[in-house]
Computed example of a mutant assay.
Amino acid sequence: MQQPEPQSFDRVLSSMCTEPHPAAREAAERFLATNPGDPATYEAVASLEERAIELLATLAEHPTPTDAAGYVTSGGTEANVQAVRSARNRHDASDVNVVVPESGHFSFHKAAELLDVELRTVPVDDDFRTRTDAVSAAVDDATALVVGVAGTTEYGRVDPIPELTRIAHETGARMHVDAAWGGFVLPFTDGEWSFDDAAVDTLTIDPHKFGQAAVPAGGLLARDAAALDALAVDTPYLETRSQATLTGTRSGAGVAGAVAAMEALWPDGYRDAVERATANAEWLASALAERGYEVVDPELPLVAAALPRSEFDALREAGWKVSRTSHGELRVVCMPHVTREALRAFVADLDRIRE
C-alpha cells in the first residue's frame, strides 16, 4: 500500500506549528530512538536536554539560565498540566482552585479534570486581556495557581503578567505564564511576560511552535527546582531514581531538534522571522479591513476577522486550512512558513468568493 504524503504547509494558515528548521529535522532523525526519560542510559540526549532548558531559559529571561529548572515536554498541554500539578502539590489547602482567564488554553480544563482541582474562569476585557479585578475577586486562600497567557491562541494578546503575579503572590498562590506560542515571538517586542518582567514561578514555552523545532517539543520552565521537586516520583528500576516528568518514555527527537533549531536561529533568525510574520499579519489585517471586514488589531502575528460563515466555508473548500475563534471570526496565524505570496493568493480567492 502506498503511504500518503505528509501535509503540505502551502495553504496552512491556522496552525501554530510550522515546518522545522533543516538542522532540527536532521537532529531529530539522529536522536529518534533515544529516550531522555532514562537519562542514565541515554546520556547524550540527557545532556542535550540540559542545553535545551538553558536555551529556553535564555529566551524567557530567567535570571540564571544555567540554573533554570525544567524539561522538554510533548507540548504546551503537558507543560500546563504539570504547572497545575506542581502548584497543587505545593499548596497547603486540601481542596485547591486554579484561576484562569477565559482566553486560557483548553489544556487547563483537562488539567482541572485530571487533577481534581476547581477551575475558576475569569472574564477578559474589551481587548481580550484578563481582567485583573476579576482575578482579585476570584482568588482566595485555596488558590494554588493564577494563570496568565502571553500570546493567546485566538487573538494573540498578552495578559498583564506583572499585576497578575502580584495578585497571585499576595494571596499565597503561584504564578504560571502560558507562553507556548508567544514565547519565541515576545523577546522581540516590548511586552511584559518573562521571568525578568515579573516573579513568575513557572512558564510554558514550545520550541515546536514559532521555535521551528520538530514535533513534539514543548517546554516547561521553573524559576527554581522546588517546582519540579513537587512533581518527582520514584523510579526504582532505573538508575536515575526519580522522575519529575509526566510521561515516562519521551522523544529524544524533540529534545535534539529543539536544541538544533534554537542554536541555529537564536537570536537573529528568530528576530527576522518575527519581523516577517508581523509585517505579513499587518498586511493581511489591512487587506481585510479595506474589504470592509471587522478586524481585531493584531498585537502579535495573528489576525482575526469577522467573515460570514458562507465565505469561511468556501475558503475551506478551496483548500485553505483556516480556523475560527470561539466567537466565529476567521483566524490566521502568520507562522514562519506563511509567505506574502500565500496571503496574496488567499485574498485573491476571497475576492473571487465575494463576487
Rank of each mutant, 00 (worst) to 15 (best):
L59Q: 07
L59M: 09
A60G: 07
A60M: 14
E61D: 14
E61A: 09
E61C: 08
E61T: 03
H62R: 14
H62T: 04
H62C: 07
H62N: 13
P63N: 09
T64D: 15
T64V: 08
P65L: 06
P65K: 10
T66H: 05
T66I: 08
T66Y: 11
T66N: 00
D67V: 00
D67W: 01
A69Y: 06
V72H: 01
G75I: 03
G76M: 07
G76K: 02
T77I: 02
T77R: 03
E78Y: 02
E78I: 10
A79D: 05
V81W: 04
V81L: 15
Q82M: 13
Q82V: 08
Q82E: 15
Q82D: 09
A83M: 15
A83Y: 12
R85N: 10
R85T: 10
S86V: 10
S86C: 14
A87H: 02
A87W: 02
A87F: 09
R88P: 09
R88M: 11
R88Q: 14
N89A: 04
R90G: 10
H91A: 13
H91K: 15
D92Q: 02
A93R: 14
S94Y: 01
S94N: 08
S94F: 06
V96L: 09
N97D: 09
V98H: 13
V98D: 07
V98C: 08
V98Q: 05
V98I: 13
S103D: 01
S103A: 12
H105N: 08
F106N: 13
S107C: 02
S107Q: 03
F108Q: 02
F108R: 03
H109K: 10
K110C: 00
K110Y: 13
K110L: 03
A111R: 07
L115Y: 13
L115R: 11
D116R: 04
V117S: 09
E118F: 00
E118C: 09
L119K: 13
L119D: 13
R120E: 05
R120A: 02
P123Y: 08
P123L: 06
P123R: 15
P123F: 05
P123K: 14
V124K: 05
V124C: 12
V124R: 11
V124S: 08
V124N: 08
V124Y: 02
V124H: 02
D125E: 11
D126H: 09
D127P: 00
D127C: 07
F128T: 01
R129H: 11
R129A: 08
R131P: 00
D133H: 15
A134Y: 01
A134N: 11
A134C: 05
V135L: 02
V135Q: 01
V135K: 01
S136F: 06
A137I: 08
A137G: 12
A138G: 12
A138D: 12
A138Y: 01
V139I: 11
V139M: 04
D140L: 00
D140A: 00
D140Y: 03
D140P: 12
A142F: 04
T143W: 04
T143V: 10
A144T: 14
A144E: 07
A144K: 04
A144L: 12
A144C: 11
L145C: 06
L145Y: 06
L145N: 09
V146Y: 07
V147G: 11
G148Y: 06
V149Q: 08
V149G: 04
A150S: 13
A150I: 07
A150L: 02
A150D: 12
T152E: 06
T152R: 08
E154Q: 14
E154T: 09
E154Y: 10
E154G: 05
